[in-house]
């Protein structure tokens, strides 16, 4: 049971929640990142995710380690899906357990922000009007300009 994984198969919220369940936990927060149909006026038909898989899994694990240092007592699991995803499909799941809820919320949000900075995973938008590899989520830095922070 890998806490941090990149895979092509559909992701299960139940499975990832089980990975962080512990007797000392009083809270589990989960984040579900899904494929959105509309971004401003652009309609997405489907997405394609690609990863540098071994390094991506390592970087996800690094995020978990960072979170444990910042919020001692938290336990994290992250699963990211790659390949072709349809509208509403789950692209990423993050689960965090902790003795108290605040740390679980904060560590969970930290994880998704870090994923968008340092994990070598890319998405290609297939719109009605064309296609493009996206450089970041705000679409302000489409590949190949710009450079995310480490």
């Amino acid at each position: 049971m890998e806490l941090f994984e990149v895979k092509s198969e559909p992701l299960s919220l139940e499975d990832i929640t089980k990975k962080v369940e512990r007797r000392e936990a009083g809270a589990i927060t989960t984040f579900i990142g899904t494929v959105r149909e509309w971004t401003k006026e652009k309609r997405t038909l489907y997405l394609e995710y690609q990863a540098y898989e071994p390094m991506a899994a390592k970087m996800l694990a690094q995020i978990g380690k960072e979170a444990e240092e910042k919020w001692p007592g938290t336990k994290m699991a992250i699963s990211h899906r790659i390949g072709r995803l349809e509208i509403s499909d789950i692209a990423v799941l993050i689960a965090v357990s902790s003795p108290h809820r605040k740390a679980a919320y904060e560590a969970n949000e930290y994880a998704i922000e870090r994923i968008k900075d340092i994990v070598p995973i890319w998405k290609k938008e297939h719109w009605e009007s064309g296609e493009e590899w996206i450089g970041n989520q705000k679409e302000t830095v489409p590949y190949p300009s710009g450079r995310p922070h480490l």
């Binding site: 990142g33 995710y49 990863a51 540098y52 390094m55 991506a56 990211h80 692209a91 990423v92 998704i112 994923i115 968008k116 900075d117 340092i118 994990v119 070598p120 995973i121 890319w122 998405k123 590899w133 996206i134 450089g135 970041n136 989520q137 830095v141 590949y143 190949p144 710009g146 450079r147 995310p148």
Partner: peptide, 10 residues
């Protein structure tokens, strides 16, 4: 050596 364009996971 891997060349890693700006990432867009999540």
């Amino acid at each position: 050596v891997a060349f890693i364009p700006p990432v867009s996971g999540g």
